[in-house]
């Protein structure tokens, strides 16, 4: 239990996907202009990360390791993720059109989101069991969503500020990310 809590809190606060591991930066800077979009994107990424972690966790622990073909993990994982994103998109479209309207446009972008492939590779690298993989996916996803929400809230306010011309848009967003990253370093040593 302690171990699972360590994995979870570690990924949310200390080894945060965006601030410390730099995974999923494209959607982080692309979708973090509005608070409502940020929540949807975060939810979509967390969902795909969770499903992908379960699927690749099973493949890794019950196929790749027993047959000693771990080197195939890159190609298998990326295909599994691409297929999963398609399936999730179809299922959501058929079952919940409201949810689809909220998440739909973000789903195709997720295949090439490094956060999703990143979490499956982190699970494999640390030899996580299936349960540990699920917890790490939840932690990674929540950490990602948290950052997206904080960032978009700050950027909404920042729009009103008088930013120098050459710093407008992305450069000032990177400065904000830097300050956030500095603030979150305060959580180091928590565990």
């Amino acid at each position: 239990m302690n171990n699972l809590l360590t994995i979870f809190l570690g990924l949310v606060l200390i080894n945060n996907f965006i601030l410390a591991k730099f995974l999923g930066l494209c959607p982080f800077f692309g979708v973090s202009k509005k608070l409502s979009n940020a929540v949807s994107m975060g939810a979509a990424v967390t969902l795909v990360m969770l499903i992908a972690s379960i699927a690749t966790g099973i493949i890794y622990n019950y196929i790749l390791v027993p047959y000693n073909v771990q080197f195939m993990n890159i190609i298998i994982y990326i295909l599994v993720i691409a297929a999963l994103v398609q399936i999730v998109e179809i299922v959501i479209k058929r079952t919940n059109i409201m949810l689809y309207n909220a998440l739909g446009i973000y789903l195709p972008l997720i295949t090439t989101n490094c956060a999703v492939l990143g979490i499956t590779l982190i699970n494999a690298q640390n030899n996580y069991s299936l349960l540990q993989s699920i917890v790490s996916a939840l932690g990674g996803g929540l950490g990602f969503t948290l950052m997206l929400v904080i960032m978009s809230a700050i950027r909404e306010k920042n729009e009103l500020a008088d930013t120098p011309k050459s710093m407008k848009g992305l450069p000032i967003a990177f400065i904000i990310a830097s300050l956030l990253s500095l603030a979150f370093m305060g959580f180091n040593g928590l565990l």
Binding site: L19, A20, F22, M167, L170, P171, I172, A173, F174, I175, A177, S178, L179, S181, L182, M185
Partner: peptide
């Protein structure tokens, strides 16, 4: 450290 990476890219 990570904060420095963001600052350098921003500048």
């Amino acid at each position: 450290m990570p904060p420095g990476a963001f600052i350098i890219i921003a500048l």
